[in-house]
Write a protein that binds this DNA or RNA. Structure first.
Length: 565
RNA sequence: GCGCACAUGAUCUAGUGGUUAUGAUACGAGGUUCCCAACCUCGUUACCCGAGUUCGACUCUCGGUGUGCGCACCA
């Protein structure tokens, strides 16, 4: 996956540095480590927090989005309703000849219209019956099927009273299950969004590629609920000059603007286009390189069956193009699924522009007469009668669902004639979901920002992180730790750290050049150096990470500048 | 999950069935230095875990764990 010898070495130097400096490191290493689990260390912790804050502020700025936080432990029934129990299970079988593991349903596709939907027992029976040949060696002796569930399972409560549960594989379900509260919060008016930053869990068969495939990961999802019949179109004019790389499901990759791709029918839905555009802005404000970002549309057969359109944001880095964001139009799938499973109403009310006048003209039963006449069948008779046309002549013979035929006399029925005014209707909102893999994004921020210059012993490393996400805002460096310069620098350091939103580090060891280098390596955007002049007039030099340029300014100005960023 | 390879200070690495296990960088203390990994002195830190073979294992064998790569998997 990693291409080229030089790229592999760069990747090794980068990951080595991230470990050494406490940015990202394997978790539980003193116990031997655990696959697919990573720590954000003393430097990485704030990097992650900064990325999450930029993400949070970006979406909250829309004004119609709220943040919620739901449990990671999720009852079985929730994920059964959402389809995850079925979707996240693969039925594996192992070839007895060559030990190659294969998915049973994949091998049986030619023998059943939809083997993916079969129960484990039925699939086993079909496998025994068909005995497909192994795609690897051609033999056809298979081990019994084993269910591989990609979700971590657990139990809520102890002993026999415990309810089966999973650690959530995505945060989205929490937004769907809490939909009624969100709907109420927004005074029952679409569109609106709910978002959540949190952890998700997938018991991956084989975590690989460092931070790219994790078993526990940080994700951030936004569920934007819309009225499918609304003709309000988001204003995309702000992006009419922003060219992005687009890879449509059919056709060649090209560069173009999002509004044009929508107008040309390549992007299928205006709200999807809106979130693509907003996501592009977010990626830029995090420091992603525009040339290393592309939108790739899912092919029809790649999309979940309910999705109406889906675009991934892929970022390019040491592992090639990696899916980091998915922007999916999920239709009404999720709310409908939970509604079906619970019987709760997960809908929104749509008021018609004009109330609809409905003429009701038909029949119903006269309970006092029909009840005694039909006794146990009265309910069924009522249902049937209410479907009869207004011009039905009684007595009439009708056939009930059970096959019984009854004769309904005119005394059993009453004419119903009235005019009703219907103000609106309930409908299931559609959902557009941008879902972000925070760890993957952070990885690419680091990968894009990491810059080496020189070679061998002379190599110099600079992490050109965006100042909004840089783990440390400023380094305070006394030129020498004597004659009061150290004390003054310590004072400035404390003052900066006491300033809301600012984190500074103090470094007094080694030559000044070495300390600049240490700061550059983890991407500290500026260094404030205290020298002899500082002792005289209270100024410091502000050194810019990227240019190395120094500006002399008062301590107050420097603090002010950092605080207002 | 299968196969191949690898595992030595904080990092990168040398090396050995037998005394005190290399080197560099980094880190710490001191000195020097008026701004970009300089220099001098001193110092701290390591053979992944567990069993086995052996008088003796960091070294050999097996198992585990982790890492990389290939296959499979990836809502």
């Amino acid at each position: 996956m990693v291409e080229g010898h030089e790229a592999v070495e760069r990747l090794e130097r980068l990951t080595g540095m991230l470990r050494r400096r406490g940015v990202i490191l394997p978790a539980f290493e003193i116990h031997g480590g655990a696959k697919g689990l990573y720590d954000f260390g003393p430097v990485g912790g704030r990097l992650r927090a900064n990325v999450q804050n930029v993400w949070r502020d970006h979406w909250l700025s829309q004004g119609d989005v709220v943040e919620v936080s739901c449990p990671t432990v999720t009852p079985f029934a929730v994920l059964e309703a959402s389809g995850h129990v079925a979707e996240f299970s693969d039925f594996m079988t192992v070839c007895q000849a060559c030990n190659e593991a294969s998915r049973a349903d994949t091998m049986l596709e030619d023998h059943h219209p939809n083997p993916d939907a079969l129960s484990m027992a039925d699939l086993q029976a079909l496998l025994d019956d068909v005995r497909p040949s192994c795609p690897s060696c051609g033999a056809s002796e298979w081990s019994p099927i084993v269910a591989e569930n990609l979700m971590f399972d657990t139990v809520i409560g102890a002993g026999s009273s415990g309810r089966p549960a999973f650690l959530r594989p995505e945060t989205a379900q929490g937004m769907f299950t809490t939909y009624p509260a969100i709907y109420r919060h927004f005074r029952e008016r679409l569109p609106f969004g709910a978002m959540q930053l949190g952890r998700g869990y997938r018991n991956e068969i084989s975590p690989r590629q460092g931070m790219i495939r994790l078993r526990e990961f940080n994700m951030a999802e936004l569920e934007y609920f819309i009225d499918p019949e609304s003709d309000v179109v988001p204003d995309l004019s702000a992006w009419s000059a922003t060219s992005v790389q687009l890879v449509p499901a059919d056709g060649e990759a090209f560069e173009g603007t999002i509004p044009k791709a929508l107008a040309d029918g390549i992007i299928l839905h205006p709200t999807v286009a809106w979130f693509m555009a907003r996501t592009y802005d977010l990626m830029m404000s995090l420091g992603v390189h525009a040339t290393k970002l592309r939108f790739r549309q899912h092919a029809r057969d790649e999309m979940a069956h309910y999705a109406l359109d889906c675009w991934d944001v892929e970022l390019h880095g040491s592992y090639g193009w990696v899916e980091c964001v998915g922007i999916a139009h999920r239709g009404c799938y999720d709310l409908e699924a939970h509604e079906r499973a619970t019987g709760q109403r997960l809908r929104a009310w749509r008021t018609y522009p004009e109330p609809k006048i409905v003429e009701i003209d038909g029949w119903t039963i006269d309970g006092a007469k029909a009840g005694p006449a039909f006794r146990a069948l009265a309910g069924q008779v009522k249902a049937k009668v209410e479907t009869l046309a207004a011009d039905t002549v009684f007595p009439a013979s009708i056939v009930l669902d059970g096959g019984d035929e009854v004769t309904v006399e005119s005394e059993h029925v009453k004419r119903v004639q009235r005019t009703e005014s219907v103000a609106g209707e309930w409908f299931i909102p559609h959902v557009v979901e941008p879902a972000f893999g925070i760890d993957r994004i952070i990885w690419h921020l680091l990968d894009h920002a990491y810059e080496e210059s020189g070679a061998g012993e002379e190599m110099y490393v600079r992490m050109r992180l965006h100042p909004d996400v840089a783990p440390v805002d400023a380094a305070v460096l006394p030129l020498f730790e004597k004659e009061g310069m150290g004390a003054l620098a310590s004072e400035i350091h404390r003052r900066l750290c006491a300033t809301r939103g600012v984190l500074a580090s103090y470094d007094g060891s080694g030559s000044i050049g070495r300390r600049y280098a240490r700061a550059d390596e983890i991407g500290v955007p500026c260094c404030l150096t205290v020298d002899h002049t500082s002792l005289e007039d209270g100024t410091v030099t502000w050194r810019d990470r990227d240019t190395g340029e120094q500006t002399r300014m008062s301590v107050d100005d420097a603090v002010q500048r950092l605080a207002s960023r």
